[in-house]
């Protein structure tokens, strides 16, 4: 089992790791010949986060070899990964590489960062060893991307800094285990509602963009059995509703805030799916898909 690569876009990788460390402590890092995938599963089974990074977007000289079809599955502590990647965020950083190794009987992802010291311009080398656990293929066999029906509403989320500020206030109002209701339609309207014991609040955004479902390449959905006609006849003004745990929604918004472009899918009374495009161009090279099931009303 071998993995070795130099990192050409460490800030993108660091951004993804930072966003994922908001969601959970531990993620499953899947490495193969074509892409890198990090999966974070919530303990309560209410949400899953799938992050997808194409190799060219981040790595150079990517070398991987393993007995099971050049696929390596690792369990990685996300905050440690993020922290170590941040070491490269100095102006004098020159190059970085990562490899799978074993030190003191613990498998580690060893990150080597070369920087230049500002005073003497001499190289200084920082090595960060992240402890990992190697997972057998059968351990991760059950991990499959959730399949969602074709969403009734697809909407680009409003300005994320504003959304985050409002969300934080909502979360404080409804308290722990509170619920937040999201409603959206294809007329560019998104509503966020909180209905707690003592308070009832509602925010509404208008004039949002409604991208066509499947406009971006990597979005996947399950075509319903119903005919296209039914979908097409659906009134644009009909709202689809999802109910999510307030803390979960706060996490979703925090992850969204790290991205360049965010599309939310509202599958009526079923699920919320958020596509976060991390790359500078908002392209498909690095994405985070956040799946949240809708709570019963």
């Amino acid at each position: 089992m071998r993995f070795k690569a130099s990192i050409q876009n460490i800030s993108l990788l660091s951004k993804v790791a930072g966003a994922l460390s908001v969601v959970g402590k531990v993620g499953v890092l899947q490495l193969n010949d074509e892409f890198v995938q990090i999966i974070v599963l919530a303990a309560d089974n209410q949400s899953q986060v799938w992050s997808h990074i194409t190799i060219d977007a981040v790595f150079l000289d990517y070398k991987i070899a393993s007995a099971s079809g050049n696929v390596i599955n690792l369990e990685v502590p996300l905050d440690t990964l993020h922290r170590s990647l941040k070491s490269a965020q100095t102006a004098s950083f020159t190059s970085a590489s990562i490899r799978l190794t074993k030190k003191e009987n613990i498998p580690r992802l060893s990150l080597t960062i070369t920087t230049e010291t500002p005073a003497s311009m001499n190289p200084a080398i920082i090595i960060q060893d992240i402890p990992v656990r190697v997972l057998a293929p059968q351990t991760v066999a059950h991990l499959t991307k959730p399949l969602v029906p074709r969403p009734e509403t697809s909407v680009i989320l409003p300005a994320l800094s504003q959304l985050r500020g409002i969300t934080d206030r909502y979360v404080r109002m409804v308290g722990p285990n509170g619920r937040i209701v999201l409603e959206g339609n294809m007329n560019g309207v998104l509503k966020m509602k909180a209905d707690a014991d003592a308070v009832k609040v509602e925010s509404e955004w208008r004039g949002l963009m409604n991208p066509a479902v499947g406009e971006d390449g990597d979005m996947e959905w399950e075509e319903p059995d119903e005919s296209e006609d039914q979908l097409n006849t659906q009134e644009k003004s009909v709202f689809s509703t999802v109910r999510v745990d307030s803390k979960e929604w706060a996490k979703v918004v925090r992850v969204c805030a790290t991205g360049k472009r965010v599309i939310a899918w509202l599958c009526n009374n079923h699920a919320l799916v958020v596509y976060v495009f991390m790359g500078d161009g908002g392209d498909n090279n690095a994405t985070i898909n956040y799946y949240v099931s809708s709570l019963a009303s």
Binding site: T80, R83, S84, S87, K103, R108, T117, S120, N122, P123, A124, I125, I126, I127, Q128, D129, I130, P131
Partner: peptide, 9 residues
């Protein structure tokens, strides 16, 4: 814990 090593000239 994250094991860090810094090598300086």
């Amino acid at each position: 814990p994250l094991q860090t090593s810094v090598e300086l000239d």
